[in-house]
Simulated scan of single mutants.
Amino acid sequence: MKHLISLLLCVFTFQTKAQTFKNPDSLFNPTPYGFSHASSVKTPGELVYISGQSGGLGKEHILSPDFREQVQTALKNLTTILNSYQLKPENVMKITVLIVDHSSEKLKIWEEEIGRTWKTKPFPASTLIPVPRLALDNMQIEVDAVAFKVN
């Protein structure tokens, strides 16, 4: 009985205030597409789950034909969301990178640009997945992340 009461208390606590979802005003509204830019769950710290950020610039989601520009924009979009939680790239624990028509040249660009974004090392855990296509025409990269904030 004691375990059941503890479980119910945990479930009730989780459902009341533990979750937050964020869509910074400077980014496009993702709601019509069925996702939030980020979500978090309170623990003794806070885990922040960030949806895949593309190289689309601003609310209009303008995609440059240049891969490097898309990488820079995707990392800027990721940083915008981190900032909304008062976090830095160094708080990211895990990222997943999807690259259309991946090549060694694109990997070199990714490595250079992530090195400019992450001011201190080590880098987060990472998975890079080459893909033939992403959600939108001309989208060349998408980066999602999980960050941690100590309370």
Score class of each variant (00 low, 15 high):
residue 107 L to N: 07
residue 65 P to F: 01
residue 75 L to E: 06
residue 26 S to H: 02
residue 68 R to L: 12
residue 95 I to G: 07
residue 10 C to V: 08
residue 98 L to N: 00
residue 3 H to F: 05
residue 131 V to E: 01
residue 59 K to Q: 12
residue 7 L to P: 00
residue 109 I to F: 02
residue 37 H to V: 10
residue 134 L to V: 09
residue 52 G to L: 10
residue 136 L to E: 15
residue 100 V to S: 02
residue 131 V to A: 06
residue 129 I to R: 08
residue 110 W to V: 15
residue 36 S to L: 03
residue 115 G to W: 03
residue 149 K to R: 11
residue 101 D to F: 09
residue 26 S to L: 09
residue 19 Q to Y: 06
residue 22 K to Y: 04
residue 43 T to Q: 01
residue 49 Y to W: 11
residue 36 S to K: 05
residue 47 L to C: 03
residue 45 G to A: 07
residue 141 I to L: 14
residue 82 L to V: 07
residue 127 T to L: 13
residue 99 I to T: 01
residue 140 Q to S: 09
residue 149 K to S: 08
residue 90 E to Q: 10
residue 40 S to G: 08
residue 128 L to E: 08
residue 93 M to R: 10
residue 111 E to G: 14
residue 104 S to N: 14
residue 46 E to Q: 12
residue 19 Q to I: 12
residue 33 Y to H: 04
residue 73 T to G: 05
residue 60 E to S: 14
residue 97 V to E: 00
residue 6 S to E: 00
residue 147 A to Q: 14
residue 11 V to C: 03
residue 118 W to R: 13
residue 33 Y to L: 10
residue 48 V to G: 00
residue 87 L to G: 03
residue 57 L to M: 08
residue 72 Q to E: 05
residue 70 Q to M: 13
residue 7 L to A: 02
residue 131 V to P: 01
residue 61 H to Y: 01
residue 11 V to P: 06
residue 82 L to E: 04
residue 128 L to R: 05
residue 150 V to S: 09
residue 73 T to S: 02
residue 80 T to I: 14
residue 150 V to H: 10
residue 68 R to Y: 07
residue 75 L to G: 07
residue 94 K to N: 12
residue 146 V to I: 15
residue 111 E to L: 15
residue 30 P to T: 11
residue 119 K to C: 15
residue 110 W to D: 08
residue 4 L to Q: 04
residue 150 V to E: 11
residue 56 G to S: 05
residue 119 K to A: 15
residue 106 K to C: 12
residue 86 Q to I: 13
residue 149 K to C: 10
residue 112 E to P: 13
residue 108 K to C: 15
residue 16 T to I: 06
residue 28 F to K: 05
residue 19 Q to S: 06
residue 23 N to R: 07
residue 80 T to A: 09
residue 140 Q to K: 11
residue 48 V to Y: 00
residue 60 E to F: 14
residue 28 F to H: 01
residue 8 L to D: 03
residue 18 A to I: 08
residue 40 S to M: 06
residue 42 K to E: 02
residue 131 V to C: 03
residue 95 I to S: 08
residue 35 F to P: 00
residue 35 F to W: 02
residue 105 E to M: 15
residue 5 I to N: 02
residue 46 E to V: 15
residue 93 M to I: 14
residue 82 L to S: 03
residue 48 V to A: 00
